[in-house]
Amino acid sequence: MFAFLTSSIGKKYIMAVTGILLVLFTLGHMVGNLQIYLKPEAINKYAHTLQSLGGLLWLIRGGLLFLFVVHVITGITLYLGNQGARPIDYVKPATIKATLPSRTMIITGLSLFAFIVYHIMHFTLHLTDPSFSFLATPEGHMDVHRMLVTGFGNMLASAVYIAAMIALGMHLYHGATSWFQTLGINNVKYNCTIKIIGPVIAVIVFLFNTSIPVSVLTKFIK
């Protein structure tokens, strides 16, 4: 098992499996947040339910952190190994068919890492704007709706989120299709479908997630 995990293919399996789970989280997170389009009570109630999970919430957070750390460290390890595999590069390099997202996974990946740190400081820990902690609903719970509207009302913050969603879209464009190949799921009959799963997920996640700051900025959500 150890020999498997430390081999080049094993590390790719690690990337694929952690990647799938992170994609599922991303989709779940997106669907949850889309409740912002319902009346304010909806997302506030949803947030309160999550907050009341107690130990389970920490278990989920711990699991996510583990997946994330493993995905990032393995990705960086693979990248550094690949740099070493071609010490002298071509004077005139060319690409035949590799897509831009597939060639920039390390850049979009590291950008997402930086973004997620900011995102947690912003909306989870309220470090960038401590006043978020005092936004309360009449029942005395966290007013997430108000927090999102205030947070995205800031042009700069919204710009960062939209830029990050471009990076996320690109990362998913390649990643959410690539894992099929890595796990050996390959069937001539289904290859066309497999090829578009990543791009479809990428477009969905990009459009829905970006719609939230855009809706706040255009006062569609108030």
Binding site: A85, I96, M105
Partner: peptide, 23 residues
């Protein structure tokens, strides 16, 4: 197992499914 181990020993890079190879 042996061929993949030999490949890794030789210092080749890791596949990232770019598919430049088949092209």
């Amino acid at each position: 197992q042996n061929m993949v181990a030999a490949m890794d020993r030789e210092g080749f890079g890791n596949c990232t499914n770019l598919l430049e190879c088949e092209a």
